[in-house]
Amino acid sequence: MFEARLVQSSILKKVLEAIKDLLNEATFDCSDSGIQLQAMDNSHVSLVSMNLRSDGFDKYRCDRNISMGMNLGSMTKILKCAANEDVVTMKAQDNADTVTFVFESPNQEKVSDYEMKLMNLDQEHLGIPETEYACVVRLPAGEFARICRDLSQFGESVVISCTKEGVKFSSAGDIGSANIKLAQTSNVDKEELAVTVEMQEPVTLTFASRYLNSFTKATSLSNVVQLSMSPDVPLVVEYRIGEIGHIRYYLAPKIED
């Protein structure tokens, strides 16, 4: 039997919002340590890796490891039926072919349950090597979303170059070119407004802007986003999910022909 109860259904709603543009379906791998998801987008250019730790749930029970193949479009429809302040419980019998979502209103006067068929998805997990990144940038998530949106008007690629001074985002296309430079902030009162750069060596990489924009659908999950880069390896865009976990997007770079 698998049962996971979350007081804030908004977390699960935001998680779905963050992945449903990139992925049509994904497997939720549940074990006693929590729920993990790893899936590539259809074009195999990006990879989503999400982790929700069991201790972040109000109630979590997983008698046997269970992998639930979910159609994310259907799951989004079901989660739209939950109010933000509802308590959500996901539950499934061992080797079940359906999963049930139960939404309880705060005063318990309204309880809804939705049963969804599970899919048989082939499990192709990729090994992600531990990497010491040459540059790790932390910046306000809203700022990053704004930059990606503004630059995507200029071209289909964004060049991200990181030096000890700061990080520069550039794009060029038919209408012209654009550069956005963010300097490291010196002393900000609020951590989540800071721009920090930890640099081992300068890095410049090029990425497709439409994937960066898809990643920023996770902005509602966290005030801060972390970008990790090393020469010739995928970019990592990471958003924390409250105290319960994280969502990491890996994006393969574009290279000179």
Binding site: H44, V45, H125, L126, T206, Y250, L251, A252, K254, D257
Partner: peptide, 13 residues
């Protein structure tokens, strides 16, 4: 510029 694939960096387990 040509787009590379994520599978050329991360191997299937």
């Amino acid at each position: 510029m040509s787009q590379t694939s994520i599978t050329s960096y991360f191997s299937k387990r």
